[in-house]
């Protein structure tokens, strides 16, 4: 009895994940076009949020550079997939977007990851604005373009690429968390000074993680650009994309890797529904929901689920 309960619990999470994965992979077969597009944007937010948590959640460095890396990915598509003729295949451009972002992250990280706390957050935020302004200057004075058009890509291709990145970022997060490298990240988040005393090369760990997380943000941006089709610096480096992942991670809870995904999914879905059903009050209601979550669900939606699950499954055992 106990053994069956144990194996049931143990296989519950992987089983559930498999069901969700199969449901996602087969979505274009049974779902409507609207659903495919909606899930694509949910996956986009999930990618950004999980990549953000991969770095900021464990090391405790609050990065607001997400929009910068996302935007670099978007511009990779704008440059290499213009309507005048694609330079490379879509997947190659996605890879370029990711690599370009992680290169920038390596440089920026090496320079700035010695800043702590609020200074790091401010710097990363300024980075977004700086890159956007550079982009505007470049388009105005050098290329003389107001914006750029990206080729049309089939919705299913966008969806599967986004899903592919999602699976990759989840696997990466999962394996990093269980590795020695992940332990080093956690110890930096807990006490950076002690981490360096026990022999962790803290700068290297931080910079590498920053670059890995930027890679996925850039790749996500590159494929997202094919859905936008029109790109200019204001669209690509929208600071909203720096804050959304933070809010979504708080909303979902950062205790484990599912929290941010749940947060991103609920948040993106809510945004979509509120925006279409109640366009006048959507931002206001959004604000209220967030305040309520922060006040009453300190561990996010995931924390609430875990609490309820404990009450259902563990409650009985507590009485025996």
């Amino acid at each position: 009895m106990n053994i069956t309960a144990f194996t049931f619990k143990k296989s519950l999470v992987p089983g559930l994940l498999l069901v969700i994965l199969v449901a996602l992979v087969t979505l274009p077969i049974y779902g409507s076009l609207y659903n495919v597009i909606l899930v694509t944007s949910i996956l986009m937010y999930a990618n950004l949020t999980v990549s953000w948590v991969l770095f900021s959640g464990s090391t405790g460095y609050m990065s607001l550079a997400t929009a910068a890396f996302f935007g670099i990915g978007i511009y990779a598509s704008a440059l290499f997939l213009p309507t005048t003729g694609a330079v490379f295949p879509v997947l190659v451009v996605v890879l370029i977007g990711g690599l370009a972002s992680s290169l920038v992250a390596l440089g920026v990280g090496a320079l700035t990851l010695r800043l702590r706390g609020i200074y790091f957050a401010i710097f990363t935020f300024v980075l977004v604005v700086l890159i956007m302004e550079l982009g505007i200057w470049w388009e105005l004075s050098v290329s003389h373009l107001l914006g750029r058009y990206v080729i049309l890509v089939d919705n299913n291709v966008i969806f599967y690429t986004m899903l592919g990145i999602f699976v990759l970022v989840m696997l990466t997060t999962f394996f990093i968390r269980r590795s020695k490298f992940g332990l080093a990240m956690r110890s930096i988040g807990e006490n950076e000074e002690a981490a360096s005393h026990i022999g962790i090369n803290v700068t290297m760990v931080k910079v590498i993680t920053f670059a890995i997380s930027a890679f996925f943000m850039g790749a996500t941006g590159a494929i997202w650009a094919t859905k936008l089709t029109y790109v200019d610096p204001h669209v690509a480096f929208n600071v909203l994309f720096s804050f959304m992942p933070v809010l979504m991670a708080i909303f979902g809870g950062m205790g484990n890797i599912y929290g941010p995904v749940i947060g991103a999914a609920l948040f993106a879905y809510l945004q979509e529904t509120l925006q279409t059903e109640f366009p006048e009050i959507y931002m206001i209601s959004f604000g209220f929901i967030l305040v309520a979550v922060i006040l009453y669900l300190p561990n996010g939606v995931l924390g609430l689920i875990q609490k309820l699950w404990k009450r259902i499954s563990g409650g009985k055992r507590a009485h025996t």
Partner: peptide
Amino acid sequence: HIPEGRKLFTDMSVRENLEMGAYSSRVW
């Protein structure tokens, strides 16, 4: 170097704290 003020990883277990001490590759 055992730092002043202990500087533990307060939200890790005692065992994890100790294991982190063996982080350097020579002794892992």
